[in-house]
Amino acid sequence: MQRVNMIMAESPGLITICLLGYLLSAECTVFLDHENANKILNRPKRYNSGKLEEFVQGNLERECMEEKCSFEEAREVFENTERTTEFWKQYVDGDQCESNPCLNGGSCKDDINSYECWCPFGFEGKNCELDVTCNIKNGRCEQFCKNSADNKVVCSCTEGYRLAENQKSCEPAVPFPCGRVSVSQTSKLTRAETVFPDVDYVNSTEAETILDNITQSTQSFNDFTRVVGGEDAKPGQFPWQVVLNGKVDAFCGGSIVNEKWIVTAAHCVETGVKITVVAGEHNIEETEHTEQKRNVIRIIPHHNYNAAINKYNHDIALLELDEPLVLNSYVTPICIADKEYTNIFLKFGSGYVSGWGRVFHKGRSALVLQYLRVPLVDRATCLRSTKFTIYNNMFCAGFHEGGRDSCQGDSGGPHVTEVEGTSFLTGIISWGEECAMKGKYGIYTKVSRYVNWIKEKTKLT
């Protein structure tokens, strides 16, 4: 034993070699072989497995989906700052455009905790909710729209109204504003409101030439003092309507412009014939205590009207009353817009006519005020429907199939267009061939041609 100890002390290297040989010859039971080890760690190889990531292109799944990435790591994937920024906006807080917040056709661009709407022409605001041009839906104005110097929408209202708090709607500024039905039992019968379409306001006024200088022999019209197929109006439903009495009662109609003036057809009036105007009328054979009678003290036909040349060209006249009318729910003026808007309103496509005229061709006159909704007829169809001249200051309205029309005794009465609950004068009943005849239409004086003249002559002093 002493000898062994001496050998170990003198030859430590020998001992180490012996131990190493023993270990190498022993069977290893701690580690699995290569094949079995792979069965336990069965993990798919990654895209760049075996390579240094710093030297390969980034992978979106590896960089940002398996674990949260930084902007720089995302930049490695896209290799483009702009594309990385677009991805980053949604990656950080989701897609803010998912709810489609942009209105009126706006395009949404996502941002971090926010979004941006790219608005089409005519709109602005956070969600493109603000109209900035009158060309689109009248700028959301209830009545009139004008573009300011910086191309912003400025709404306005006709006389007797003021802008509401929203700067879009119009509200009454006087007790009985024009064009409004205020009798409670008839307010439910107000005709369907007309909503502004998209309009090209630059070209809204037709490029028409008034044929002022045409000389033409007097034409022989049949029954051209021209509501057939209409309905009984309720008291106060058309408070701007008046009836004219002269040699015979209810020979023509008219509309209240203001307390002192009536507008009617020029062919209705004769110099030297006494005319009485009755406002607030409903049943011409009954006294309903809503009527107001006034005498006409002055007749002003349009300066281009000449019955000797043509009885229905420039067929418009103004009547001055001896005493002002007292405005109330049964006696209310009709609204008159400017030339541009009167023309736009007419193009809405349908209007209402009213009167006490004959209820059928050569038949009896109506006792109760009649009204009828009539569609506008395109000019080409209008011209083809008659052998008589249709001037540019006239328009056609009615039904091709016949059966409904204005008729004798309705002449001078109103053709009105309702705009968001307020009625505007767009025409004056003038003439036609018979009444409600198939293929024939009622012919009306186009008020847009005469609004400046009306307003100039009827100013209240």
Rank of each mutant, 00 (worst) to 15 (best):
Glu76Arg: 15
Ile210Glu: 13
Ile17Asn: 02
Glu129Gly: 04
Ala9Asp: 05
Asn304Val: 03
Thr133Ala: 14
Cys252Lys: 00
Asn104His: 10
Ala192Gln: 09
Asn42Phe: 06
Phe238Ala: 05
Asn38Arg: 11
Glu82Asp: 15
Trp356Ser: 03
Lys293Val: 15
Met394Trp: 06
Asn343Lys: 05
Ser49Leu: 10
Pro197Tyr: 12
Leu319Pro: 00
Ala337Cys: 02
Glu418Phe: 08
Gly253Ile: 12
Val277Ile: 13
Cys18Arg: 03
Leu19Ala: 06
Ser365Leu: 08
Tyr444Asp: 00
Tyr391Ile: 05
Ile334Thr: 02
Ser182Leu: 05
Ser148Thr: 13
Cys268Ala: 01
Lys39Gln: 09
Ala279His: 00
Glu286Lys: 11
Val257Met: 03
Leu24Ala: 11
Asp378Leu: 04
Thr276Gly: 06
Gln370Thr: 08
Val451Ala: 12
Ile428Phe: 05
Val416Arg: 02
Thr332His: 05
Cys382Gly: 02
Pro172Thr: 06
Glu76Ala: 04
Val273Ala: 12
Tyr341Gly: 04
Asp249Trp: 04
Asn36Trp: 05
Ile309Met: 12
Leu367His: 14
Val56Thr: 15
Leu369Gln: 07
Phe348Ala: 14
Val92Met: 13
Asn213Tyr: 07
Ser423Cys: 07
Ile390Leu: 14
Leu460Cys: 08
Cys435Ala: 03
His314Asn: 12
Glu73Ile: 07
Phe345Leu: 10
Lys89Trp: 05
Ser411Asp: 15
Val195Gly: 15
Ser406Gln: 11
Ala207Gln: 10
Gly432Cys: 10
Thr332Cys: 05
Asn138Asp: 04
Val183Asp: 08
Ile309Asp: 07
Cys117Asn: 00
Ser187Pro: 15
Glu340Ile: 14
Ser423Glu: 02
Ile112Arg: 12
Ser354Cys: 09
Val374Gly: 01
Arg226Lys: 09
Cys435Gln: 03
Ser448Phe: 02
Ser350Gly: 09
Ile300Leu: 10
Tyr450Met: 02
Ala9Pro: 11
Glu35Val: 11
Gly246Met: 05
Lys339Pro: 15
Glu61Thr: 11
Gly355Asp: 02
Pro235Glu: 07
Phe144Pro: 00
Asn310Ile: 02
Asp111Arg: 04
Gln167Lys: 05
Glu53Asp: 11
Cys97Ile: 01
Trp118Gln: 02
Thr342Cys: 03
Gly122Leu: 03
Ser406Gly: 12
Ile275Cys: 03
Glu270Pro: 14
Arg373Val: 06
Lys126Phe: 09
Gly280Cys: 01
Tyr352His: 10
Glu53Val: 08
Val153Arg: 11
Val56Gln: 15
Leu369Ile: 06
Glu72Lys: 11
Trp261Thr: 02
Asp249Thr: 15
Cys69Gln: 04
Pro177Glu: 01
Thr215Cys: 04
Leu103Cys: 03
Ser406Cys: 08
Ser107Phe: 05
Cys268Gly: 01
Gln370Tyr: 03
Gly160His: 04
Lys234Thr: 15
Trp118Asn: 01
Asn166Thr: 03
Asp405Phe: 11
Asn151Ser: 09
Gly105Gln: 05
Val183Glu: 10
Gly439His: 10
Arg226His: 14
Val154Pro: 04
Ala337Ile: 01
Thr445Arg: 00
Ser217Thr: 12
Glu66Leu: 05
Val228Phe: 10
Leu319Arg: 00
Pro235Gln: 09
Asp322Gln: 05
Pro324Ala: 10
Lys89Val: 08
Arg83His: 15
Asn245Gly: 06
Asn258Tyr: 02
